[in-house]
């Protein structure tokens, strides 16, 4: 359960996004969003370097395929 201050932060951020041009909020959002993808890819790349890691990757891939 997130506390009230978390929702207040969501509201403050939304008001900011609404009040400035796209290029301004997007450049701030980009680093956060891209980091998640880049770190996820780097993690998978590192896993792929070992036999055990490759098995984990295979299990992860299988789970994604089976997920409905």
């Amino acid at each position: 359960m997130r506390d009230k201050s978390h929702m207040e932060q969501v509201e403050r951020w939304a008001e900011y996004v609404r009040s400035v041009p796209l290029s301004e909020w997007k450049s701030k959002q980009k680093s956060l969003i891209d980091a998640q993808i880049i770190i996820g890819m780097r993690f998978r790349k590192n896993l792929g370097k070992t036999e055990e890691g490759r098995k984990i990757l295979e299990r992860l891939r299988k789970a994604r395929i089976e997920k409905k």
Binding site: W13, V17, W25, I33, Q36
Partner: peptide, 11 residues
């Protein structure tokens, strides 16, 4: 929501 600027990521 992400395309509209919310401050969280997704994969």
């Amino acid at each position: 929501a992400i395309a509209h600027g919310i401050g969280r990521g997704t994969i």
